[in-house]
Design a protein around this nucleic acid. Structure first.
Lengths: 130, 130
DNA sequence: TCGACACTTTACGTTTACGTAAAGGACAGC
DNA sequence: GCTGTCCTTTACGTAAACGTAAAGTGTCGA
């Protein structure tokens, strides 16, 4: 029952990033694969974390921010005060994301309108042109 | 009927960025204010462009990409082929943004779940603790 | 045993997006 | 006339996120 593991090359291919990038994330504390000899061995959990990291990147977060978000996924079994602080952090992050979602919808609808204007101009020139 | 204008300091305060940042955007061709003497004078349109630039930044786009997006807003009165190319660019950009919106919802719902787990743990410790 | 290939570390290089310091012009109030 | 505030340009500095080159280890197949 060998649990599924991945080499750095596997993940590199799977997610279309360079090994250098993956090692860089490790250097920044976002990943901590085991070692077999001197080679890195990635677990399914490591793989998931990498997926989350890349998602964070697509959303425009810095490595530091992504680290904070990843910390949010590992809910602590801690004390009450710690939990409350943790929840506050989640809420702050959510407000952040919701503003981003709002910005996104703005841009999307504005692009819609621009495209509509282009389409109109196209159909006008298709009709009225010589 | 002096149309509303703004100094670099005005915009700096309004949007909470440094004058240096605003000049940098100009250097990259994203803004082109007029000059009164050697001082920059920003029109309402310039102000709007700056707002769009900062929105693009919040969405994680690079200055170059933001420039492309801004170009999209100024629909050309051009030829048919140019218009079609333009529409294709808009669509590509929209696909990009839609993936980003999807990523965002993923993260948001996952954060929801993490918070729910925290809340449960809080209420358990509030009831069952000594 | 010899490539070939995947992996490793170390370390300097690069691009982006500004920060920051230096040095100065223009005007307002005291 | 001096101080202060706001603006200007030029130019070097910097943090983030890797790229890339150098030099070496480990293992597999022919």
């Amino acid at each position: 029952m060998t649990v599924h593991t991945y080499s750095i090359g596997d993940l590199s291919r799977d997610f279309d990033v360079t090994p250098r990038t993956i090692r860089f994330y490790e250097d920044r504390g976002l990943l901590a694969p085991e070692r077999r000899g001197q080679n890195r061995v990635y677990s399914p959990r490591d793989r998931t974390r990498l997926k989350l990291i890349l998602r964070g990147k697509r959303l425009g977060f810095s490595i530091l921010e992504i680290g904070e978000i990843l910390d949010l996924y590992d809910a602590p079994d801690g004390e009450q005060s710690q939990l409350e602080f943790f929840i506050a952090k989640i809420r702050a992050r959510r407000e952040n994301l919701q503003r981003q979602a709002y910005d996104l919808q703005e841009v999307l609808s504005e692009l819609d309108e621009v495209e509509r204007r282009c389409q109109q101009q196209l159909s006008r020139s298709a009709n009225g042109a010589s």
